[in-house]
Design a protein around this nucleic acid. Structure first.
Lengths: 106, 106
DNA sequence: AAAATACTGAAGTTTGTACTTGACAATCAG
DNA sequence: CTGATTGTCAAGTACAAACTTCAGTATTTT
C-alpha cells in the first residue's frame, strides 16, 4: 500500500530554501548527510532535521548502511505536486473557457 | 515586459496554509478582501498581508475600485511552478534512464 | 585497542513571520 | 451631512521552526 502524500506537507517542505538546495543536490546524485551539510554551511544536525521533513513529505528517501546515511530523491512527492498543479490548471482552464464564452455572447 | 517570476518566492508563498486557502477560494471566483477574511476567521489586515505576498510571487492579482479591492488568480506564478517541476522531472527521467542502462549492461 | 569518522538526540537560542490591535482614510448609502 | 462599510498603515505580540551546541552511539580504520 503506497504511502498517501499530503500536498500541504510537500508545499511546506518546498517552502524552505535550504531544503530546496538539498533537493537540487539530490537531483544530481545521492549524497551522505555530511556530503549535503558541507557545501551548505550548516551542521549535520540541521541536515538531519530537514531530511526528516523531506522524508515525511515524500520528497526524499534515506537509508543507513554502516555509519553512513545515504539520501536520494523520492519521486512520490513531486509526482503529487505535479498532479496537484494539473488539477488546478484544468480547473482554471475551465473557468477561462467560461469567461471566453461569456465574452463571445456579448 | 512581463514580470520575472522567482520560483523561490512562489514556493515560499505556497508554503503557508492560509495562503493556500486563499488561492483555493480564488480558484472558484474573485473575492473582496473581506470576502476572503470572513470564512478564514482572520482579520482584514492579515489577508492584506498575504495578498501582498501572493501578488509579489505572481500567484494573485488585485485591483481596487471604489472602496473594494477585488482579488483574483494570477496564472503566471503557477505556470512558473509547472515549468519548474517539468524541468526537474525531465532531469530525473534522464537520471533514471542512465540508471536503467547501467543495470542493462550488467 | 585506540582514534577517527558519520551520525543521532536532547535541549536551548534566535529569528522570521503570521497575526492582532487600534487609529486612520476613503467611499458609499440614507 | 451622518453613519456605515471597506480597506490601509504602523506597531507590537507570540509562536513555530531553523539552527546550534554538546554529549553520546555506532561503525570503520590503523
Amino acid at each position: 500500500m503506497k504511502k498517501k502524500i499530503d500536498i500541504g506537507q510537500v508545499l511546506d517542505a518546498l517552502g524552505d530554501p535550504t531544503r530546496r538546495a538539498i533537493l537540487e543536490r539530490l537531483s544530481e546524485r545521492p549524497h551522505s548527510v555530511s556530503g549535503l551539510a558541507t557545501p551548505l554551511g550548516v551542521t549535520l544536525t540541521a541536515i538531519g532535521q530537514h531530511l526528516q521533513v523531506l522524508e515525511e513529505s515524500g520528497l526524499a528517501r534515506t537509508e543507513k548502511v554502516g555509519r553512513v546515511r545515504t539520501c536520494s530523491l523520492d519521486f512520490a512527492g513531486l509526482a503529487a505536486l505535479e498532479k496537484w498543479i494539473q488539477e488546478r490548471r484544468s480547473l482554471w482552464d475551465k473557468k477561462l473557457d467560461q469567461l471566453g464564452k461569456l465574452l463571445d455572447e456579448e
